[in-house]
Write a protein that binds this DNA or RNA. Structure first.
Lengths: 210, 210
DNA sequence: CTTCTTCAGCAACTTATGTTACATAACAAA
DNA sequence: TTTGTTATGTAACATAAGTTGCTGAAGAAG
């Protein structure tokens, strides 16, 4: 585990902290599509992402879903962090977007390290900052953009996170994540295809240029 | 200042911290309607709210605005906090909703206290948690609710924050904060009046029951 | 009082988005 | 191959929201 930890975090954390992480952290692999935090769960440890990607989703009472953002290497889930510390239920759902490796840090250590290591504090604050900005970006999208622009942004983000010009999703899945209906997504995707930006196939979208 | 500080924070902070705050904090009064953080500003101190209320707004490139949430007594602006720490520009605008008293904490102390006082750490983490949840609530509103429901929520929040059944706003002002048009707000308010929930007057809305 | 400005009401219309219903295509399983 | 299932395409329609243009009312200023 120590090697994989160094890959992403040796620049960020001081040596004694890296040592402690490797002692108490629990290495975990999550395969694509696996849900590992559900809304309402009590979360007792905080994830450090080593590789892969995780999507964070919000849901209302009626089962309407909305993609908030993706976590990638070097990220942590700030909301999980605040949940742990406050012994609160999770407000979000986390699903592996790709096969993902992570290190789980027990909540007691988080608290301890915040007093003890400056690099940990910086990491935590930086994470909060990043996550706030991602939430603001999500708000911008739904408040200020039309569905066609949101769809474009969705495809761009997806390509970036998966590092793959082929988006492996059905129209229905995209519709869920943008909280709209399948027909609307099909319609807008067809427009994008006519503009030459994508190519539609069954279960996949080939991105040409966005 | 020390008296006003005790009002809201003596339960939360340990005595030596209260002492430090009263030594380095700068007392500030902001009158209703005054903008004291603008998007793009570098913020060098963090506000602790003593009394009053502050509204936090987001804006896109074209001048479209959106109300994110209100801060009240005992709150702090988590986003300002992350901005200070990271030396980043503010992503939001802050305007006093009421006449407001606050204590400004210099950024160096924030960092120092995070290592030094457990009660400060708890406060900071709790603030992050609360602000995340408010952002999520905002996202819920714009993603899952129709405009009539968002308007209702707006009126409820306003009544709560101002502690006044009279909402002192023009339809145009409400339209800005919900990022829609004046005509739409007028239309929906008229519906609410017909339902007996409010009474419309010039420049003000009398709330009957929501 | 008269005049001017701002605010609110309202009708008619456009547009974006959501819904329903059905047809066909792609693929999998038998 | 035949059959069944899931994904996609598309038309026709419904609704929420946004737009334009105009009206009169409320209040401020003269």
């Amino acid at each position: 585990m120590i090697d994989e930890l160094r890959e992403g975090y040796s620049e960020i954390f001081e040596a004694p902290l890296l040592q402690e992480i490797s002692e108490v952290g629990i290495f975990k692999e999550v395969s694509e599509g696996h849900k590992f935090i559900e809304i309402g769960d009590y979360v007792r440890s905080m994830p450090l992402l080593i590789s892969g990607a995780i999507k964070i989703l919000r849901e209302d009472g009626e089962g309407d879903e909305l993609l908030l953002y993706f976590l990638e290497r070097g990220d942590t889930c700030a909301m999980t962090m605040t949940c742990c510390m406050g012994q609160k239920k999770s407000e979000i759902r986390a699903i592996a977007e790709l096969d993902t490796k992570l290190i789980m840090i027990p909540v007691q250590k988080m608290e301890e390290w915040t007093g003890k290591y400056k690099s940990w504090r910086n990491f935590v604050f930086k994470s909060y900052h990043n996550r706030f900005n991602e939430l603001l970006e999500t708000i911008d999208s739904i408040a200020f953009l039309r569905m066609d622009e949101r769809l474009l942004k969705y495809l761009r983000d997806k390509v970036k996170v998966t590092n793959d010009m082929i988006v492996q999703n059905t129209h229905q899945e995209i519709a869920y994540e943008l909280n709209t209906s399948r027909v609307v997504i099909s319609r807008l995707l067809k427009q994008l295809e006519k503009l030459g930006k994508i190519e539609l196939q069954r279960n996949r979208i080939k991105v040409i240029s966005l």
